[in-house]
Design a protein around this nucleic acid. Structure first.
Lengths: 239, 239
DNA sequence: TCCGTGCGCTAACCTGGATCAGGTTCCTCA
DNA sequence: TGAGGAACCTGATCCAGGTTAGCGCACGGA
């Protein structure tokens, strides 16, 4: 079940057998979480992090007005809140988009890792920096891309990230977000998300039915998105 | 000159004399950089990080169309690209807004720190997570706040961050960005930035002349911004 | 079987911010 | 002293995306 996580790490650096063992030792227990729950509430003190084994999670930030922005989507293999290890509490919520299986990692053990495994520490440090890079790309999308290319960009990103862990085949993958949740990712209204989806469909760039995305023309979609995967840091290097 | 940096760290955790010494040892040299230069170009291999001693830097992301988004502003005491230590290259540029004095920190020495100073490692890990939290707040601004409250929010943030290092007194501070650069932060056009500034002025919330900001009514400004500083993690805690 | 609810979809209308096309002020340098 | 340029400011017009309101369908529960 933790394979996706190791795969994700090994795209960016080599992980020794020893380190793999150390990673497995980090997990204290595995839990299941139902769909549509707030798993971590902003401001709460946190003493464990959540490694997502299956399902989808999201980071959500709310405004007093009730408006909400999703700041990142997490898929199998992602640490949803590794940053809470050093931050001790979060300023955003973590919510479950689907039913999820989650491995819990006590901060105590992560602390042990920083004492005994400097390389692994650097790898996990890098993972939080990778999250930040994805975030930064979303910032660029929200600030400068229009609705169409913003949405195209998100689907390009997810196709790559899901591909790395074998959850996208032939540019086709399950996508459990409702149009409303998609709107919360993209800084749009649900109505406009619907229009924009139709426009992508009309151009033959995307199909979306039964909670499943297919991208018949990935190059066309990348062109609309001006997609450059450099920000996903897909090269294996000693960190 | 490195005082601002130590101050910034000590807002969030205690730093021992020993660690302070280790921090000073990280710096290999100090350089000056003129205004309006691209100091780090995206994609280049990097083997040192930049600790800003004075002046302003920004992280910039460009689109092929020539549009640009500033993703973060850096002031004295900030590490502008600590994340390049684990990422090895960046997917954004780092540019100088003003003339800057910068301490260079070879990645080799940061690596040494991760081997010998686990606590300091966690503190610096936290600093990159703090950058990400600020980024996340900008994401929320761009996705959900309108021009007025987005701009108000930025000035509230800067007032706090500059205050921590003694560069904002009585809610008044030097602000070297042009209206065009401000527009690139806020995802607006320069024209609309101008109008929005005027609106803040008209409401008696802000004065802006001679590259200097004064906030006569900080509570009013915070109200317009719906500003909550939780995302700046201003509490001292063992990390 | 009927009712309620969540989601996708549509149409009509509205508006915040973009765009375009200038103007003004002020500084620098010849 | 005057030409050129950078930054700031202004008004008129436009349009991407928001808002409002309502339809239809699938599904689950009583």
């Amino acid at each position: 079940m933790i394979e996706a996580h190791l795969q994700k790490l090994r795209v960016r650096d080599s992980i020794s057998k020893d380190e793999e063992h150390a990673i497995l030792e980090l997990v204290s227990q595995v839990i299941d979480v139902p769909q549509d729950r707030t798993i971590i509430r902003h401001g709460e003190e946190i003493n464990q992090s959540m490694l997502l084994l299956s399902g989808w999670l999201a980071r959500a930030k709310d405004l007093p007005s009730g408006q909400r922005q999703l700041a990142e989507l997490h898929i199998a293999g992602d640490f949803a809140d590794l940053h809470s290890f050093t931050l001790k509490r979060l300023e955003h919520d973590v919510i479950s988009i689907t039913r999820c299986r989650i491995a819990l990692v006590p901060h105590e053990r992560l602390r042990g890792m920083t004492e005994r495994h400097p390389h692994l520490t650097r790898v996990y440090w890098m993972m939080t920096n990778l999250d930040a890079a994805i975030q930064r790309e979303w910032t660029l999308s929200l600030g400068r891309r229009n609705a169409l290319s913003r949405m195209a960009h998100l689907f390009c990103e997810l196709d790559v990230r899901l591909g790395l862990i074998g959850l996208s085949q032939d540019n086709s993958f399950d996508f459990p977000l409702t149009q409303m949740e998609l709107a919360e990712c993209l800084g749009l209204t649900p109505v406009h998300v619907n229009r924009t989806l139709q426009e992508l469909r009309r151009r033959g760039l995307l199909e979306f039915q039964n909670r499943r995305i297919s991208i018949p023309d990935i190059d066309g979609l990348k062109a609309v998105a001006e997609f450059d995967p450099a920000y996903l840091y897909l090269d294996r290097q000693p960190r």
